[in-house]
Design a protein around this nucleic acid. Sequence first.
DNA 1: GTGAAAGCGCTAACAT
DNA 2: ATGTTAGCGCTTTCAC
Lengths: 341, 341
Amino acid sequence: MKKRPATLAEVSKVAGVSRMTASRAINNQPGVSAKTREDILRIADEMGYVVNPLAQKLSTGRTRIIGVVVQLHTPFAADLVLGIGSTARNAGYEMLAYSLPADDSAPPGKVVSLLQQITDGVIAILPYTSEYLDTLAGAAVPVVTVDTQTDDSPYPSVISDSYQGGLLAVRHLAELGHHRIGFITGNMRLSSARARLQACRDSVAQMSLDPDPWLVTEGNFAQRGGFDAANQLLALPQRPTAIFAANDLSALGAMAAIREAGLQVPQDISVVGFDDIPLAHQMHPPLTTVRQPLQEMGRSAVNMLLPLILGLDLPSRQTVLPNELVVRGSTARLGGSGRRG
Amino acid sequence: MKKRPATLAEVSKVAGVSRMTASRAINNQPGVSAKTREDILRIADEMGYVVNPLAQKLSTGRTRIIGVVVQLHTPFAADLVLGIGSTARNAGYEMLAYSLPADDSAPPGKVVSLLQQITDGVIAILPYTSEYLDTLAGAAVPVVTVDTQTDDSPYPSVISDSYQGGLLAVRHLAELGHHRIGFITGNMRLSSARARLQACRDSVAQMSLDPDPWLVTEGNFAQRGGFDAANQLLALPQRPTAIFAANDLSALGAMAAIREAGLQVPQDISVVGFDDIPLAHQMHPPLTTVRQPLQEMGRSAVNMLLPLILGLDLPSRQTVLPNELVVRGSTARLGGSGRRG
DNA sequence: GTGAAAGCGCTAACAT
DNA sequence: ATGTTAGCGCTTTCAC
C-alpha cells in the first residue's frame, strides 16, 4: 500500500543513464541506441514506471487526456460518454468527466479552468439553461459541444437533426394510414422543439394530413406536460388516431393519459416519441420512437476535437447527424386491430 | 479564445508582491496583512486567476480532487456519482470520473496510476468481474470502494445491507397475507445474492411460511433469468401467490412471464424486486421494491475517503447502509381484488 | 547517441 | 509580514 510510483529519475538511475535518455526511450523518440532503449524499457517495466501526466503537462502543455463536462445523471449522458470514451481511447487519449451539479451551483469559470489545466481539450454536453457557454469561449484549450437540445450552438459542435427526425416520425404514422395526428410540442425555447414542430407542420402540408390547428398542443418535454397535452387531444370532438410527442417523456405521459381514458395503445391510438430513452423499449407496449445516435455523436465530438488539439483547422464547425426511426409496438396501422401492419 | 490562464507569478507581479505572498493570500493562509491580502485577491480575481491544481499537486502532492472509477453506463452509476459529487464539493473537493470501458479493456494499472497522479484519493465502483481490485492495493492514494454487488470488499468500503433488504421484502409480503412465496435468486457468485436468499430462508423459517424448496428458483440478475425462473414457479402444481426477485431486472422478467401466463400483477401474484432502478416506478403496475440508498452510499464513501486523505484513521473499515422498502402497485393483500391493502 | 541546464507553476522550509 | 531558495517530475534546448 501507499508506495509512491517510480519516477523517471529513479528509472534512469537504475539504468545508469541520464533522465533525458530514459525519457527519449520511453517516449519512443529517436536518439537512443537500440540496446540502451531496450534496457531502459525493461527496467522501467520492472519498476512499474508510468509517466506522470501532470508533470508532462506542466512541461509540455499536453496530457493526452480529454475532458468532458456533463450532467452525468442526465438521460443522454451515459451513451454520449460511452461514445466519447471509446473513441478517445482508440486515439490514445484518456477521458475524464466532470459532472455538473444538478442545481447549476458550480461556478462555470472554475470548472473550465480546472479542466483546461488537466486536459488537452474539452467536450461540453451542456444543460440548456446554463451560462457555461460564455465561459467556454475563454478556454485555453479547444472546446467542442454536443447538443442534444438546442441545435444551435455557437461553438464547434455535434448535433442531431431534429427536423429530419420529426419528418421520420410523421411519415411513419402517415404510412400506417393515419391522417389525423396530434402533436405534443416540447419546450419551445429550444430549437430542437421548434424543429420537430416545424417538421410536423411541413409534413401535414405536404402529405395532406388533417390540418386542424387544435391538433398541436403544448408540452414541455416533461412527462406531466405530455399527460396534460394528451388529455387535451383526447377531449377534442374528433380525436386524433395517432400522437407524436416531441420526446419520449412526453410520450410516456401521453400513453398514461390514453390508458386512463380507457383507450388502448396502439389499437385505439398510435404513439411515437423522440429520443429512445432506455425506458422506451421496456414500456407496454414498447414505444416507437426516433433515436438520436448518441454514441456516434460522442465519437464525432472526439473526431472534431482531436484536430483542434493538434492545432489543425476544422473542415466544418458543425456536424449534423441523422436520427433514426425505431419502430416498436406503440404504433399500428389505422383501423388494424393487431399490433402493427 | 485560447488565452493562457494567468499564473501566480503574473498576479504577484501586478500586485507588486512575491509569489509566496500571493500564494498565501490566495490559499487563505496566515502571514499576510489584511490589506495586502485583499489587494491580491482583488487583482487575482480581475485577472481571472485560478490555481493550477497540477502544479499544486506536483509541489504538495494534493489537488483537492477526488477521483471516481466507475462504469458510467451502469444503472447505479448516476446516483452514486451524484452523491459523491455533491458531498465532495461541499467539502471543498472537486470530483473527476474515469469511466471504465464496458469490455474490461482498459489496463487497470494504467487507470489507477493515472488517477492517483491527478487526485488525492479514489472511490472505486467496480464491476464485479474486474481485477481492478488487485491493482487498487498498490495505489499511492487512499482508495474506498462502493459495492453494489458483492457486499464483501476487502477494502474500506460502503455497502448496503442485502440481508436486511431481503428481510424487508419478505416481511412485506407476509404482512399482506402471503405465505407461499416464490424466490428468484441472483447470480449466486455474488454475496449480495446469497444474502438476499439467506434472508428469505430465515424469514420462511421464522414466519412459518411455506417451506417448499421448489419455491426457490435460480435467476442470474438478468431479465431473461427472471422470466425463466418465474415460468418455473408458475408451472408448480401449487403456484406461489407472491414472488420476490433478487433484483428489479429479474422482477421485470417475472412480471412479463406472469402476464404471458394470462395472470395479473398484483391481483393474482404480487411481485417485489430489489434495487429500485428508474424503470421500477414506470412499470404497470409500478414495482414494489427494495431501494439501495445510492446517493447516501456515495456520500458515505466520500466521508470515509476524506479522513484517509488527511492521514487519519478510520473508525471502521466498512460502512453498511440499510435498504428501504418502496411499496408500489405490484404487491397486494392476498385474496384482495383491489390494488393493495 | 547522450547529457547538462533551465524552466513549466506552484509551495515547504527557511530566511529576513 | 514578506521574500528567497529549492524542488516536485518532466521535457526542451543546446552542448558534447
